[in-house]
Design a binder for these strands. Structure first.
Lengths: 221, 221
DNA sequence: CTCCTTGGAGAGTGGCACTATCCAATCATG
DNA sequence: CATGATTGGATAGTGCCACTCTCCAAGGAG
């Protein structure tokens, strides 16, 4: 199919597709003549993934490119590709440096390390403390503390328990796919796309639980 | 304290504080003279909440203003304020309209309604289908389907279960605070600030679970 | 041949969260 | 009291980023 049809089928404007091509988010089409190129279903699928990453996952263009590049990096094995791809997914605002320096930041780090030790996770060691997720967690706990909501290990534990359950569910979902390529794409897509699902369900459950505890007074109270 | 000291104590540039004052995110200080105003600890606390909403929660200025206005709206009772505030929190990209029209969108809505029916939640009725969380969920499920990852009620159930556990934990945390004002602020702050905590823990758990299943091959694989 | 379409490239747009610059009133100091 | 610094308010500008517009030459359709 031509670019125009790719646009029609995906609902993405041609100008935007051209932009993605330029940015390397979409591999170039098979050149038919000097001025025309042919696109296939793989392009369509990739385009939808890109849109999902950018619009739903709010992934910046540059990060999306890293993720996609890792997915198809032939020089890496399956696990490395997945690791690199998920690694490149955004994890919220990077710590600015001054917040890891103060006492609150240090306390946050200790709390997180204690939590991981209790859980038996190995993030605090080796490559682990460079993990974006680890840094994201430390930053979030630090922010909570600075706002006057100190959270101890016991406060975090329920969230970690929920995270474990979710991870098991996630990986079960991914294992439904047979080919490594599909699994890779599914891992990225599901990691990003289930985040809004989870957050929406949490808020709805909050509302439900609030109504249960405090009566039928008001919507989403 | 003066604006400069508010800035020093919060780490927020004076220009930014002025901007927040203009935008109504921060109530004006008590006017001392025609050209000077006095700020107190309440301003400091509010300022930190604003920063948390904007920087961590990525809440747009306009939404943040709505949230904060609802928090201190004297004409509403406790529950209504909380409901309005959480209602105003961002819920991802608004559906563009064309996605609720097609068959995939309709199927997504049916799936969500079925899930809620099974859970016994009442979101599908009355005010409920206008709930931002509900719309967020339908949009996310629709996007998943369009990407080729259809999720049935059984697929969503584990996430809903996790959401319920989280909501109970959230409300327990909020109940620690005695005054209604503190509870309101805590509800907003914790809803927003625990989102990165949860997402980080989920990703770390994914990595952990992946290592457990597929060996020690690679980081975060 | 003529007109339309295609794809590539660079510059332009719009939204948004700030941020730099002014300015007059006021405060602190000698 | 003189004088320089500071304060807070208003306005315009900045930087980023995801697009989007405009142009263009090469191809294709009738």
């Amino acid at each position: 199919m031509r670019l125009a049809e790719l646009s029609r089928r995906s609902g993405v404007p041609t100008a935007t597709i051209k932009y993605y091509l330029r940015e390397g988010l979409l591999p170039p089409g098979r050149r038919v003549t000097a001025t025309q190129a042919e696109y296939d279903d793989a392009h369509l699928k990739r385009l939808r993934l890109v849109r999902a990453l950018i619009q739903v996952g709010r992934v910046p263009i540059a990060s999306a490119r890293e993720v996609l590049t890792a997915l198809e990096d032939e020089s890496l094995d399956h696990n490395s590709r997945l690791g690199t791809a998920v690694w490149a997914l955004p994890h919220g605002p990077e710590p600015t440096g001054d917040e890891s320096a103060d006492e609150t930041g240090a306390a946050a780090r200790r709390t997180v390390d204690a939590l991981l030790a209790r859980l038996g996770w190995e993030f605090a060691e080796g490559y682990g403390d460079e993990s974006p997720s680890y840094r994201m967690l430390v930053t979030a706990v630090g922010t909570l503390a600075r706002l006057g909501y100190p959270c101890a290990v016991e406060d975090l534990a329920p969230y970690a328990r929920a995270g474990r359950q979710l991870a098991v569910t996630d990986l079960d979902l991914i294992e439904r796919y047979d080919s490594p390529e599909e699994q890779l794409e599914a891992a990225v897509a599901l990691t990003v796309l289930y985040e809004p699902v989870l957050l929406a369900l949490r808020r709805m459950a909050q509302s439900e639980e609030s109504n249960r505890r405090y009566g039928q007074g008001s919507p989403e109270a």
